[in-house]
């Protein structure tokens, strides 16, 4: 029981780190980025290459995955995404699906279609026995990192100058521009942060979620559920949604395996029917 709870929380935390970048682009820039999972996949494969081919230690791979995917994110944002901000959601969906197809085929070409494995360092392997349940140390590690990230993100958004500018730009882009805030650069930085987080999530998730070229499509649904259910106006919404989703998914697979992924889809559709703006939307926007 404790194990399930624990796995669920770790899974949910991981989903949050993976999906919060999507929440940012969708909520702040009103851009539907279905290719978000491709950034996560990029981070994952980067870790695999760094560890297995170059022998870089795992802990060093995590910041590397963050920085490199963030860099790729900035380049793509400046060159391609920026041209689609004014277009319809459908155009954005089609465009980013195209990117996903390209990413999948490219990874397949360079890395092969098989599952990628990494060997975690010794101090992250093994189990802890607590209160009769066994807890994977690596899951504890994930919870610690993701928990710290959540706190940092929330504080960064509410306490720093960057955060207050960002919130201003989201609420009233025109007024923010009028006050001398460079909204475009702010968005580029935010996009980079979001893709970097996806990369970091992908790197952390190699051992838990698995990694193969279909990753972006497989987990796209999960990201979208987190974002649409949680709403995009705060970080708390997606965070709660990820935890619920993580717990629901793990518990569902454990207790009622015959329902499979049914629970999640039903939940998403039901919530969207009742609250089209998501669970935690602020009144009317």
């Amino acid at each position: 029981m404790l194990t399930i709870l624990f796995d669920g929380v770790a899974y949910g935390m991981l989903l949050f780190v993976l999906a919060c970048g999507l929440a940012v682009t969708l909520g702040l820039m009103n851009f539907v980025n279905l290719a978000h999972g491709a950034f996560a996949m990029g981070g994952g494969y980067l870790t695999v290459v760094l560890m297995n081919r170059l022998g870089v230690p795992f802990l060093l791979c995590l910041p590397a995955a963050f920085l490199l995917t963030a860099a790729v994110g900035v380049v793509l944002e400046r060159t391609l995404y920026v041209r689609l901000y004014g277009k319809t959601h459908l155009d954005q969906v089609l465009f980013t699906i195209g990117l996903v197809f390209m990413a999948i085929a490219a990874i397949d070409y360079f890395m092969g279609a098989q599952q990628q494995l990494i060997t975690l360092p010794a101090f992250l392997r093994g189990q802890l026995e607590i209160l009769g349940g066994s807890i994977g140390i690596y899951r504890l590690f994930i919870i610690a990192i993701c928990g710290a990230l959540v706190v940092v993100l929330q504080l960064g958004l509410s306490r720093t100058r960057f955060g207050s500018r960002l919130r201003a730009a989201v609420d009233q882009p025109d007024v923010a521009r009028g006050l001398g805030i460079d909204v475009n650069r702010l968005f580029a930085a935010t996009f980079a942060l979001g893709s970097g987080l996806a990369g970091l999530g992908g790197a952390l998730g190699v051992d838990v979620l698995g990694l193969d070229p279909t990753f972006p499509l497989k987990f796209m649904i999960y990201f979208l559920v987190v974002v649409t259910v949680g709403g995009t106006t705060s970080l708390i919404g997606p965070f709660v949604a990820s935890l619920v989703l993580g717990l629901g998914d793990v518990a569902g697979k454990y207790f009622v395996p015959e329902f499979g992924a049914f629970m999640i889809y039903t939940m998403m559709v039901a919530i969207l029917i009742v609250r089209p703006q998501g669970l935690f939307a602020r009144g009317s926007r």
């Binding site: 391609l80 195209g98 990117l99 390209m102 999948i104």
Partner: peptide, 9 residues
Amino acid sequence: QFWLGAALV
């Protein structure tokens, strides 16, 4: 699939 994606983009 790669070229398909490129065509879409």
